[in-house]
Deep mutational scan, measured.
Amino acid sequence: KLETFPLDVLVNTAAEDLPRGVDPSRKENHLSDEDFKAVFGMTRSAFANLPLWKQQNLKKEKGLF
């Protein structure tokens, strides 16, 4: 399991300012399950079932792209 970080560490943070080991294209993977659901309004599995373009739009909207 990946290390999780608080939302404010990941949202609207440039790649070079992210904690070590965080993939800038997969910031959402480093949210706790609770934060993930609070941000996206759905579970990880529901998010994973969305088309890629919709996932990317949601990530942009939430500052996690």
Results as ranks from 00 to 15, higher is better:
F47V: 01
L64E: 06
T4R: 09
F65R: 07
E28D: 07
W53L: 11
E61R: 06
S25E: 15
L31Y: 01
N49L: 12
M42S: 02
K27Q: 10
K60H: 13
T4L: 08
E28N: 01
L50M: 14
Q56A: 12
W53A: 14
F5M: 15
K59C: 05
R20V: 10
G41Q: 10
L2T: 15
K27F: 06
A48F: 11
K1E: 10
E61Y: 01
D17S: 10
F47H: 01
E3M: 13
Q55K: 05
A46M: 09
K1C: 03
T13I: 05
E16K: 08
G63P: 01
V11C: 07
A38L: 13
S25D: 15
V11R: 10
T13D: 12
K1M: 12
Q55V: 01
K62D: 00
E3F: 08
V22K: 05
E16R: 09
F40N: 01
E16V: 08
P24V: 06
P51G: 03
S32Y: 01
D35N: 05
E3H: 08
P24L: 06
S45F: 09
N57G: 10
K62M: 07
K27M: 15
Q55Y: 01
K62T: 10
A15Y: 07
Q56M: 13
L64P: 04
N12C: 06
E61H: 05
N57Y: 10
P6I: 00
D33Q: 04
V11T: 07
D23T: 03
E34S: 14
Q55L: 01
D35V: 02
N12L: 03
E3N: 15
K27Y: 07
F40E: 00
L31M: 09
D23R: 02
F65N: 15
V11N: 07
S45C: 11
V9K: 13
V39K: 07
G41C: 13
P19G: 03
R26P: 06
L2Q: 15
F65Q: 07
L7R: 06
L58K: 04
H30D: 04
Q56E: 15
K54C: 08
F47A: 00
T13L: 08
A14K: 15
G41S: 11
N12W: 02
E16L: 03
P19T: 06
K37G: 10
G63Y: 03
G63Q: 04
K27L: 15
A46N: 11
E34G: 10
L64N: 05
E28G: 03
D33R: 03
M42I: 12
K54N: 08
P6L: 01
D23H: 09
L64R: 04
T4G: 05
H30V: 03
A15D: 15
G63V: 03
K37M: 02
D23A: 03
N12F: 05
L52S: 14
D33T: 04
K37W: 11
E16C: 13
P19H: 06
D35R: 01
L7V: 08
L64V: 03
F40K: 01
Q56N: 14
A15H: 15
D17E: 11
V39H: 07
K59P: 01
R44D: 01
